[in-house]
Each structure stands twice: as C-alpha cells, then as structure tokens.
Design a protein around this nucleic acid. Structure first.
Lengths: 91, 91
DNA sequence: TTACTTATTAGCCATTTAGCTATATAATGA
DNA sequence: TCATTATATAGCTAAATGGCTAATAAGTAA
C-alpha cells in the first residue's frame, strides 16, 4: 500500500475533505468554505490528496472540480482490514 | 476517533510493529531485532504506539513485554469503515 | 486589453517528526 | 556492592508538515 495514502489520511482536515467529497464532487472553493483555514491552505491539502491519488481534479471554466477516487480509498480500507483486521491471536 | 491513532498508524515502521504484535506479545528487544534502526529509535516508536493506546507494556524482570491493544485497533478500523467505507455516491 | 473571479504556487515561519549517539534507569546475579 | 543485560530518556540534527500572506495563472466577459 502506498505510503502517501497513509500520510494523506493522517490529517484531520484532509479526512474531512474526503468525507465532503463522499457526498459528491465539489469545487475547490466549496470545499474551502467548510473550513476556517485560508483558501491556499486548503488548496495545498487538496494537492496532497491528489498526489496520493485519493482525489482527481478537472477544470470547468474558472472552477476546478474535485472528486473522490473511490477506488484508492476502498483499496486502502481493504489493505487495512487484510493487515490489521480480525486475526486476533486469541480469537 | 483519536488523532493520535492516525498519526501512529501513518508510519511504516510502526505499522510493521503492529503486524508483529498481531502474532503475539514480544519484548522490546525482539521487536527491535526485526528492524535495522537503532534500538532507541524503536523504543521511541513504541512510545508513540503506547500514547495512542495501540499497545500496552508490562515489565517482566529486565524485559518489557509489549502487546497489542486489539480493542483500539478494531475501533479504529470500524471508524474508518463507517466514515469512508461503502457509500459511494453512485452505488 | 482590462477587470474580475477562481484557484494555485511561491516564499516564509514555527512545529513536529524520525533518526542518531550518549547517558540513565531498572532488574538480576555474582 | 559491582557488573551485566534490557530498555528508556536526553539532547541533538535534518527533513517534513501545516499554517499564513503575497504573487501568479487561467478563464470569462466587458
């Protein structure tokens, strides 16, 4: 599993962005509106998520629309379950 | 969900320690033997895991035995599934 | 072209992180 | 008590992180 996904998911702001994008695609501005951070700060979080391939972006006029890459998220969850789920030594 | 668990799990060395402890309790030295890092480095990783309550330690003579706190690990996985699992907007 | 809007990139700073070596602590046994 | 073993803590450094403001880019429309 790609280390960058773990790093991306280890920040509370980025996890909240992921949760927002679960509702559906959103522009960078719509995402930023949910936080008190400065807008460039959110932009950088989006870049981190993009490098982890957890989100994809697409320009639409002056807007940039972000959407969740559900595949990566689900692969990450599957990896976690495989490595850390179940299998208690005294199960 | 406690932020410290995410931070603890975001490091590859610590995840490997967790995987080792899934096999059963181990002393700090046994754990350190699985890595090329210096012993104090592993000791510090164990402290991070301890503060996240992912492991517990118990002195046994000169040894200190670490064991997994499976409850926390499973609660973390459950939280992840609840927040990020399923629920694709186009499912 | 100019002005406006949306968003990113650049550059800075403070804090955290992860590694190391050296030192300290705790338990045991001679 | 002294030595040995197992482990943690202290103190340092380099790199990464996350925040900010200021500047830049990209698109639209007058």
């Amino acid at each position: 599993m790609n280390e960058s996904v773990f790093k991306a998911m280890s920040d509370a702001t980025r996890r909240k962005i992921i949760e927002l994008l679960k509702e559906g695609p959103k522009t960078a501005g719509e995402i930023a509106d949910h936080f008190t951070h400065a807008q460039p700060t959110i932009s950088r979080h989006l870049t981190v998520l993009k490098h982890a391939n957890l989100v994809v972006d697409q320009r639409e006029g002056t807007f940039i629309i972000y959407r969740l890459n559900t595949t990566i998220l689900q692969e990450w969850l599957a990896w976690l379950l495989e490595h850390f789920g179940g299998g208690d030594s005294d199960e």
